[in-house]
């Protein structure tokens, strides 16, 4: 089955799910109304009779079930979205591979830098928000939560990669994983910036995978970097990560971090606060302190 038809199918399913969500919602609404009315009546009678208690317990149990049903449908929809996104990603990687490996194909048209920057912002904005079940703690690669020590980034994943620039300086760049060699433990990555168009072979410790979920500050604040923490953050409108201090963590799911980049051209050694999305803020291994 082609990716296109599969996506079309998934979209149809999503459409169904959205309709179901609405049904669930109206059902639970009826129930919630009932609960509210019961409470009102109890208030006017000014006593809690066992009848009401039993009634309320029943109503609440139903309401909870309804909410869980609605929630599972919503999760199901989110899964569908994730599935569609992964299909699109697969297709993108396939196209890229085809582009890279076929000799007959013309060289990839280089994007205008402004467009690349918009795409990067777009990808940060559409990074899924992790929604755990009650009591569940955020998984690795959600927000500031690091990957497990044996984690291997998949092909197509975006990473921060420490590369040696032409002038010999080390630099953290935004890159995309091409492959991982398990025997040498080395990654092959592509510079995201098509102008660079360089492929680097780097050891594991030079690669930091980017978060795959946003952490929700309202529910999982522990999965975010805290104020004054040292991080690597993508400098706005570039494809390079620089050391920065967290100025303020995000307050809402769609908010960005505000960070202070280390910058010697400013009197106090730090840039004014700049916004960087969760997607592009990773922990800084403090190997080389200044």
């Amino acid at each position: 089955m082609s990716a296109d038809t599969k996506i079309a199918e998934l979209l149809t399913e999503m459409h169904q799910l959205i309709k179901q969500t609405q049904e669930e919602r109206s059902r639970s609404e009826h129930n919630l109304l009932n609960i509210q009315k019961t409470h009102e009546r109890m208030q006017t009678e000014n006593k809690t009779s066992p009848y009401y208690r039993t009634k309320l317990r029943g109503l609440y149990t139903t309401a909870k079930a309804d909410a869980e049903a609605e929630c599972s449908i919503l999760r199901h929809s989110l899964d569908k979205i994730a599935e569609i996104k992964s299909l699109l990603e697969e297709r993108r990687i396939a196209a890229k591979m085809a582009g890279v490996y076929s000799d007959s194909d013309p060289p990839r048209k280089t994007m205008r830098r402004g467009v690349l920057m918009t795409l990067l912002q777009q990808s940060a904005m559409t990074l899924p928000l992790w929604i755990g079940k009650p009591g569940e703690s955020p998984p690795p690669l959600c927000g500031a939560t690091p990957a497990s020590s044996d984690y291997v980034a998949k092909q197509g994943d975006k990473v921060a990669a420490r590369v040696k620039a032409v002038d010999g300086d080390e630099q953290w760049i935004l890159a995309e994983v091409v492959s991982y060699n398990h025997s040498t433990n080395k990654y092959e990555v592509d510079d995201i910036d098509e102008e660079g168009k360089e492929r680097h072979t780097l050891s594991r410790r030079r690669i930091i995978p980017l978060p795959q979920w946003k952490a929700n500050p309202e529910t999982d604040p522990e999965a975010l970097f805290s104020k004054d923490q040292l991080v690597l953050a993508l400098y706005p409108q570039t494809t390079c990560f620089y050391r920065a201090l967290i100025h303020t963590p995000p307050h809402r799911p769609q908010d960005d971090y505000s960070v202070l980049f280390e910058d010697t051209s400013y009197a106090d050694g730090y840039s004014p606060p700049l916004n960087v999305a969760q997607r592009y803020v990773v922990a800084c291994k403090e190997n080389k302190k200044k």
Binding site: R113, M117, Y235, P236, Q237, S271
Partner: peptide, 8 residues
Amino acid sequence: TSNEQVKG
């Protein structure tokens, strides 16, 4: 300013 570049 550098953080507002390549936006046209």
